[in-house]
């Protein structure tokens, strides 16, 4: 009760003028009635790496994302949390236009990478995806050797001029992904023969082998056990020195551990964005608070 009131006061948002309504809201009501027009907190930053303005996503007739405005700062880790079906994965997939591959999916609004629109006809989607890499929910190594998995990206983009250079890229990528010591003696074995956690790190190595500027991670640990998860989280912390990372996660603990900023999505709306610490200790919006305290989701 008191927390909700504080949130109300601090943001100055008008919802539930009468005390009775507040009373009602503090229970299990998760309707969209009190979702703010613009996200609470600090969705915008100065000198952003990526900017999204008024992003709408439709699957056929159904709208999945509503007018999202968000900036991603350079070299930050931004976590996107929210209950199932809130559109956080859909939103993430807009950032490197992976939604293009889905029939019936339409994206509206403006998304910019280094102040250039990613929908620009001059910007090829191939080069966009080379700059904005992606790691998926389920580890999906190619049914090829470990070496081939990592070398594939550099090969198709022509990043290596010779065999030695390619070997070098593979080694450094695997090292950065913390997998080198485990696989250096069996690079020619199939990548699908590794354990789940190793496979996911292989996928991360594959993504960073093309030296992207931004890495999108779509629930990278949801299929992994706690130990493998811990390894990936460590890796994210290390990678954040060189890369900008946007991660979607189901686990609030994970968001709290790895991210600098946290964005809370609710039913297709971006509700709140703030420093991770602020979001978890002092959420501004009622829904955020309800979610992180485990009242739904």
């Amino acid at each position: 009760m008191s927390l909700t009131d504080t949130a109300d006061a601090s943001t100055g948002l008008a919802f539930g003028d009468e005390p009775s309504t507040v009373q009602e809201n503090s229970s299990m009501d998760v309707s969209t009635s009190d979702i703010p027009e613009t996200a609470v907190g600090q969705p915008l930053v100065s000198d952003p790496k990526m900017t999204m303005r008024n992003v709408d996503v439709f699957y056929g007739e159904k709208q999945a994302i509503f007018k999202v405005n968000l900036d991603i700062a350079r070299n930050e880790v931004i976590a996107m949390i929210g209950p199932s079906g809130c559109g956080k994965s859909t939103f993430l997939r807009c950032l490197n236009r992976m939604n293009d591959t889905i029939v019936d999916c339409r994206v509206g609004g403006q998304i910019e990478l280094d102040e250039n629109s990613i929908f620009d006809a001059k910007l090829d989607v191939v080069s966009l995806r080379a700059r904005v890499g992606m790691v998926f929910q389920k580890p999906n190594p190619f049914p090829k050797s470990i070496y081939e998995n990592v070398a594939y990206g550099p090969k198709i983009h022509g990043l290596a001029s010779g065999r030695t250079e390619l070997d070098e890229i593979v080694e450094t990528s695997l090292q950065k992904a913390g997998l080198w010591d485990e696989v250096k003696d069996r690079l020619q074995e199939p990548g699908t023969g590794l354990s789940g956690g190793q496979q996911q790190r292989l996928c991360i190595a594959r993504a960073i082998a093309v030296s992207p500027e931004v890495i999108l991670m779509d629930e990278p640990c949801s299929a992994l056990d706690p130990i493998a998860t811990a390894k990936i989280e460590e890796l994210i912390a290390e990678l954040s020195e060189n890369f900008t990372i946007a991660i979607v996660t189901h686990s609030m603990q994970q968001a709290a551990r790895v991210s600098d900023r946290t964005a809370y999505f609710h039913l297709g709306y971006l509700v709140e964005v703030n420093d991770t610490e602020t979001v978890f200790t002092n959420p501004s919006h009622r829904l955020t608070e309800a979610y992180i305290t485990g009242r739904f989701g």
Binding site: N96, M98, T101, V126, S127, L128, R129, A130, G133, M134, V135, F136, K138, N140, P141, F142, P143, Y152, G153, I156, H157, C203, R206, A207, A209, V210
Partner: peptide, 23 residues
């Protein structure tokens, strides 16, 4: 062919033709 393989290829910037011929 599992869609995850297609996504993996597209995700690191393979063109559609490369996705088809390589994977």
């Amino acid at each position: 062919v599992p869609p995850s393989i297609r996504e993996a290829a597209l995700g690191i910037g393979a063109s559609r033709m490369q996705m088809v011929t390589h994977h």
